[in-house]
Design a binder for these strands. Structure first.
Lengths: 185, 185
DNA sequence: GGGCATTTAGTTGCGCACAATTTAATTGCG
DNA sequence: CGCAATTAAATTGTGCGCAACTAAATGCCC
């Protein structure tokens, strides 16, 4: 009932580690390890991946604010972007554009359909495939989204050319990481 | 029961939109809109945010492979990084380092505790606070993580200096986006 | 010192990402 | 043709991110 974790019966079996944690059990036997060293590379502030994830989440936060009016989440917005650009697409193609599989897309599309923004229909040519088509309402939403990219761009505080450069580097990085992950598997 | 969506009773009420979707309901009245135009900015390939998110997810995928041995997820690994670097920390401080709140950290830490890697104990000085301390097992895991940054770095396919430059840009971007989101609210 | 605002974690609920599995349709190959 | 392999989507289950809320402890101010 209570949100507290510990006042109950068996909360502190813990592990038979150190009998009494004096003060700082771990860090800095001789100060912060240098960035280039093996130990130093485990420092959080050395991790691009974290900066990357932080930036992505910051984007997400700004989109969340801007998309509130439209009633869309950020992933749903990306789906609508693809549909606005390409029109009706099967789920698989949608997933290729967005790097998402049916496990993510199926429930998301169900929500978009419930919101009246898309229509799903099994393909007549290939009954395995489901065609996702933006409804009139979904198409109309595009007008209300028109100024979002501009507002986002203005918020980044960097120029369009630097954005393009950044994008190119990131896409290159993504390719390299995907390749590595496939080879490590 | 069946995974199919539509053969059931009421799957196709849809919306009274277009009577018959001819072929391509949307795109390109006059070809692809140019990148700089208002319409063109809604193109997915114009969105840094998507490249950013893709790169972040690609990182995540590679980490997933490399961390499998250690039994850690990527977010759990980040938590351990902070604990290895700073030793025992209250949940709040942990969250400041990682940009996470208790809603995310509480269950994650519970899982780390169940795995025997951390110990949680309410602070004696301030009973509101919970101190998160790496166990001996948690500390020992650091040795097994030592070569992960090197393997990741090797997989990025870019130099350490460019990594640093990228990181700096991303951190700057994150700050700008956070500011914008706060002001739009 | 009493009472109220603030702070800290935890919980609940929702949506997304992803692995693994299931079902059905299609393809391919003998 | 018949049957195995492949493909498409959905489902299930787990974990993360975040908003909203709750409970408890502390700080503060009169």
């Amino acid at each position: 009932m209570t949100p507290r974790p510990n006042p109950g019966p068996a909360p502190e079996p813990a592990v038979a580690t150190s009998p009494e944690p004096a003060a700082v059990p771990v860090p800095d036997p001789a100060g912060t390890p240098p960035p280039g060293s093996t130990l130093g590379m485990l420092r959080l502030d050395q991790h691009v991946c974290f900066s990357l994830q932080s930036a992505s989440r910051a984007f997400n936060g700004l989109y969340r604010v801007l998309l509130k009016d439209l009633g869309l989440t950020y992933p749903q917005y990306l789906v609508m972007l693809v549909l606005w650009e390409h029109g009706t697409l099967p789920v698989r193609k949608l997933g290729e554009h967005l790097r998402l599989d049916s496990g993510t897309l199926s429930p998301l599309l169900k929500r978009l359909e419930a919101a009246g923004l898309v229509h799903r229909e099994r393909s007549a040519r290939d009954e395995r495939s489901v065609e996702v088509r933006p409804t009139e309402e979904g198409l109309a939403l595009r007008e209300r989204a028109l100024d979002i990219p501009r507002r986002i761009a203005a918020s980044t505080g960097i120029g369009l050319d630097e954005i393009q450069d950044l994008k190119a580097r990131l896409d290159h990085l993504t390719t390299a990481l995907d390749t590595a992950a496939a080879n490590e598997a």
